[in-house]
Amino acid sequence: MSKELNKKEELILFLSDTDEREGLLGKKNRKLLSDPLTDNNPITVQVLGICSALAITVQLKPAIVMSLAVMAVMAFSNMIISLLRNSIPSRIRIIVQLVVVAALVILVDQVLRAYAYDVSKELSVFVGLIITNCIVMGRLEAFALGNGVYKSFLDGIGNAAGYAFILILVAFFRELLGAGKLFGYQVIPDSFYEFGYSNNGLMLLSPMALITVGIIIWVQRSRNRALIEEN
């Protein structure tokens, strides 16, 4: 590569951090989106963000809203940290990340309260808990600090999608088996209950969320043996 770069090329390099000129959704970029959904899932493989996976998977609706909020926070915090990556002093980088994430979360909360009041009531305390979601800080530290803005954006979206996928899957089973409902609507017909079927109240409590996540991990590892660690 020639040393004489013009301004425009320099900007592209800064934003993408790659020598290869690849399309917006080239093979590598697509992998950033798809990997966290399967073999590098933040919850089932990296085992991050478990706490919120237990807390808000009792019903489908809050789980979906939470996933969208996490996605917004992750995409923007990854982009901001990536933009600042060459100027953040390394000794205080964790605090800088925390400040950026916390500011974004407060912003999301305030905007929801003003323009989507019902959604904000639905999420109540859990919006604040996004700050403590290990996936957000984990991706900032592991990816955004060393990669271009666009790639970091994709990485944020991808990991949030991987988180959302598991959250929604767990919420589906917990609401269906625990309350016989989906999105708050009764789906198990009354005739089942007349034959002696009853809702499993244990599904509504946190331990069953952990067990559900465990079963998902079990299924995933038996399908892809490469994920199993050697002792």
Partner: peptide, 18 residues
């Protein structure tokens, strides 16, 4: 980037902006 002065300045600027 690793000097104390830069670290302080960066922290102050960040907090003020946020």
């Amino acid at each position: 980037r690793n000097s104390n002065a830069y670290t302080f300045l960066f922290a102050i600027a960040l907090v003020a902006v946020v």
